[in-house]
Structure formats: C-alpha cells, structure tokens
C-alpha cells in the first residue's frame, strides 16, 4: 500500500527515537541550564536540561509529552549535541532550522540522526513539532552566552 509522502516524514529512525527516547528524564542538580517550552495550540510540552563546561555541552536530558515528531526530535537533539561546543551546536541548530524550513542547508555538516528530519519541509504544519526541542536548546545556549531572551513560551 502506498502511504504517499508520509514515508518521507515518518522515517524508521524518527519512530525509533519516539519509541525509545534517549536521555529521557530530568536530573536533580543546579549545575544544569533548564528550559521549559510549550506549544499551547497543540499541547506539546518539553523540558530540556543542559550542562555546559568550558563552552562544551557535556550532558543533556529531555522530558515531555507530545507527538512523535516533537518527542523524537528532542531525543535526536540530545544525542546530536552532546559533546559539541556551544559554537558547534549553534551551527548545527541553524543548519537544522534551515533544513526543516525547506531552505538551503549544508548537507555536509555532521548532524547525526537530525538529518532524517528533511522530510518535515514538505509538512509545514509540523515545523513547530520538529523545532520545539531545538528552540529550547537555542534558549539554553543564549542564556549561557548571556543573551537570555526570556521568551520561554513557544
């Protein structure tokens, strides 16, 4: 049976992260940056915790509720940026946002499983799902860099 475009969005990797999320569950401790984002129109609710040592992202945790795209993206994001510097993470983030928007992006840039979200470009209604965790990351890194926008609600 043909599922049309659906297969370009719901890739095996995405559904695997949805069913078996990585770095799921929040940790105690105040050495984490922590951001809680919600999309009140659809109910996505996500919290991410990031530890940054000397400009290096050393630990990431995520938790929340939402659709397969938003939840898997949080899992993928946590894996992709762990061990990266803030500067590298910003590069991946910008590239990812361009990719899911359907704009020009650098296909050579190493971004792990995040590359499978290319299909989102054909589902503009799901753009917010694919980006909510990444937007939380952007806020964490802004806060770390001292540029807190304090716009914690998506």
């Amino acid at each position: 049976m043909s599922y049309g475009n659906l297969e370009t969005l719901y890739r095996q990797v995405i559904m695997d992260h949805y069913k078996n999320p990585r770095n799921k569950g929040l940790k105690d401790g105040d050495d984490f940056y922590k951001i809680h984002l919600k999309n009140p129109t659809c109910g996505d609710d996500i919290t991410i915790q990031v530890k940054i040592d000397n400009g290096m992202i050393t630990d990431v945790y995520q938790d929340g509720t939402g659709c397969s795209i938003s939840m898997s993206a949080a899992s993928v994001m946590s894996e992709t940026i762990k061990g990266k510097t803030v500067e590298e993470a910003f590069k991946i983030l910008d590239n990812y946002l361009n990719m899911v928007k359907g704009e020009k992006f650098d296909a050579e840039l190493e971004m792990g499983d995040a590359i499978v979200y290319q299909g989102v470009a054909q589902f503009p209604a799901r753009f917010k799902c694919a980006t909510i965790a990444w937007k939380a990351l952007a806020q964490v890194m802004d806060e770390h860099n001292g540029n807190c926008t304090c716009d914690h609600e998506e």
Partner: peptide, 9 residues
C-alpha cells in the same frame, strides 16, 4: 498514535 500524527496521515 498521537492525534497530530493521525492528522498528518
């Protein structure tokens, strides 16, 4: 299946 995934399908 989350309702938003259903809606996309």
């Amino acid at each position: 299946v989350h309702p938003h995934d259903v809606a996309s399908a």
